[in-house]
Amino acid sequence: MALFDKIAKGFTIGISYIAYAVLVLMMIFTGAAAVARAFHRPIIGDVEIVQIGMAILVACSMAYTEYRNGHVEVGILVDRFPSKLQKILDIFSLCLTVIFCVIVAYAFYAKFDMQHTSVLLGYKFYPFKALLIIGFIAWALMAIQKIIVLLRMKEYKKFE
Rank of each mutant, 00 (worst) to 15 (best):
R80F: 10
R80V: 07
I76C: 05
H71T: 08
L89S: 13
Q86Y: 10
D90C: 07
L89D: 12
V74H: 10
K84D: 15
I91F: 13
L77T: 12
N69G: 09
E66K: 01
E73G: 07
Y64N: 02
A63K: 00
L94F: 14
E66M: 08
Q86N: 11
L89Y: 14
A59P: 00
Y67G: 02
D79L: 10
G75L: 10
I88F: 14
A63C: 05
Q86G: 07
V74M: 11
E66R: 02
V58Q: 02
S93W: 09
I88Q: 05
S83P: 06
I88A: 13
L85M: 14
V72N: 05
V58H: 03
F92G: 04
E73C: 09
D90H: 06
L94E: 04
K84G: 11
G75W: 13
A59Q: 03
G70Q: 08
V58T: 09
D79N: 14
V72Q: 06
S83Q: 12
G75T: 11
L94A: 14
I88G: 05
I76W: 06
F81L: 15
R80E: 12
G75Y: 05
P82N: 12
V74T: 14
T65F: 05
I76T: 04
L77G: 01
V72W: 05
K87N: 08
Y67K: 01
E66I: 03
S61D: 02
C60F: 02
N69M: 04
K87G: 13
A59D: 01
H71L: 08
A59H: 01
K87W: 13
C60V: 03
L77R: 11
G70Y: 09
H71R: 04
V74N: 10
I91A: 11
S61C: 10
D79T: 14
C60R: 00
R80L: 10
E73Y: 07
R68I: 06
L85F: 14
Y67E: 00
T65M: 05
I91N: 11
Y67A: 03
L94P: 08
V78E: 07
